[in-house]
Simulated assay, not measured.
Amino acid sequence: MKAEIIAIGTEILLGQIVNTNAQYMAEELADLGVDVYFQGVVGDNRARITEALQIASERSDLVVCCGGLGPTEDDLTKDVIAEFTQSKLVIEKQAEEKILELFKEGSDSLITANKRQANTIEGSQLLKNEVGLAVGFVHKYQNTYYAVLPGPPREMKVMFEQEFKPLIDNILGQRKKLYSKYLKFGNIGESTVEDMLKELIIKQDNVSIAPYAGIGEITIRLSVKADSFEQAETYFEQTAQPIRELLGDYLYSEENESLEQALSQHKIADFGVYEINTNAYLSNRILSTDAPHENLLVSTTKVEKQSITEALATSQIVEFIERNKLKNGIGLFHCQISQASVTPSGRPKKRFFIALCVNNKVSVIERTFIGDMQAVQIRVAKTALFLLLKAL
């Protein structure tokens, strides 16, 4: 089944809200074995919504419309789909009762406006809204399914999970589903990864290989359609093994997790972070709620006006470890700007010393990074995390 997602709302076009719904639905539909080939955004305009539906109907088996189900006159989604599919809108009685109860003390105009949210196409399959007022539906017209879901993410996700997903699963029946596996790499650049994997990517067959670059880490997503999870795992292993052979030195996880999250899986006793002349990115990330590290006892950041040398970095991390009675830690030391050099193209090069302490054994390496300071601070922190994970 080929699907298309259409987000409806002028506020999305104006950039006032981010269209996170499309990301969520695309991922969920992929898990169902539905191929999402197109996504679009259209404002609250009858003619343009109709045009979007016309285009979608010619190339997709399933058109998922999200948003535009509210009580105001510019909430046009249901009206336009009913007109486009030559169908009749009717009131869903339970939804109407819910609205009447909620607005029983309100004016007639307020009640009339909100009753629009109980509209559904006659003969369609209802999608109940357990957390809001606007019901959705799935309606088939000329071999295309048209689905309507509310725009607020909380309402949409509950309706998608509880109502829409089981319905589509039943419509599709027995079929292959899409499975994904993630390989995570650090301390290596995107271009190097792609160059080392180019032969595998060219020859990829039923398992697709897709590298994604983040600042300081690389994700390779393997995807395959299979009859079962077990069958998918067999396919994945056939593809993952040659990737491990090529890039094993840089692999830190086979779960979809960040370096910080991978580190949090280690029960490291007496662990601290010490930073000089940085923006404390590393300390903040290790202490963040999405990558908690309960064993991080000490985190210190300060600015040093003196020049940072390898000897100074070594003595500083050793003193930090001893003073705080630690056994493990990371030290990041950014050399002062006066020590920086530039590339032939004029881009500044920033020097760092990365200190690692594992079971009271200290090592210090010097690394140079190119780019703006914000990105460099992230890359050096990610590099330090990767090196610590490997040392552990």
Score class of each variant (00 low, 15 high):
G9Y: 08
T20S: 14
N21T: 03
A26R: 09
V34Y: 00
V42W: 09
D44V: 02
N45T: 11
A56F: 02
R59L: 00
D61A: 02
V64I: 15
E73F: 12
D74E: 11
L76N: 03
K93E: 15
E101C: 01
E105N: 13
E105S: 14
I111T: 06
A113D: 12
R116Y: 03
Q117D: 01
I121F: 01
S124C: 02
L127E: 06
K128D: 08
G136Q: 00
V138N: 03
Y141R: 04
Q142E: 15
Y145W: 15
Y146M: 06
V148I: 15
P150H: 01
P152V: 07
P152H: 04
K157I: 12
K176N: 06
K176S: 02
K177Q: 08
Y179R: 04
G186L: 07
E194G: 14
M196H: 13
K203V: 10
V207I: 01
V207K: 03
S208L: 04
I218S: 05
R221C: 10
L222P: 06
A226E: 02
T239C: 05
A240Q: 13
P242K: 12
S253I: 04
E254F: 02
A262R: 13
I276D: 00
N277Y: 05
Y281C: 09
R285P: 10
R285K: 07
I286T: 11
I286A: 10
T289V: 12
H293R: 00
T300S: 07
K302F: 11
T309N: 09
T314E: 14
S315W: 03
G329A: 13
G329E: 02
G331P: 05
L332R: 11
I337D: 14
A340I: 08
A340V: 01
S341L: 13
P348N: 13
P348Q: 15
K349R: 15
K350N: 11
A355P: 08
I365T: 15
E366N: 13
G371K: 12
D372I: 10
D372T: 12
D372H: 14
A375S: 10
R379A: 08
V380I: 14
A381H: 07
A381K: 00
A381R: 01
A384D: 13
K390L: 11
K390I: 13
L392E: 09
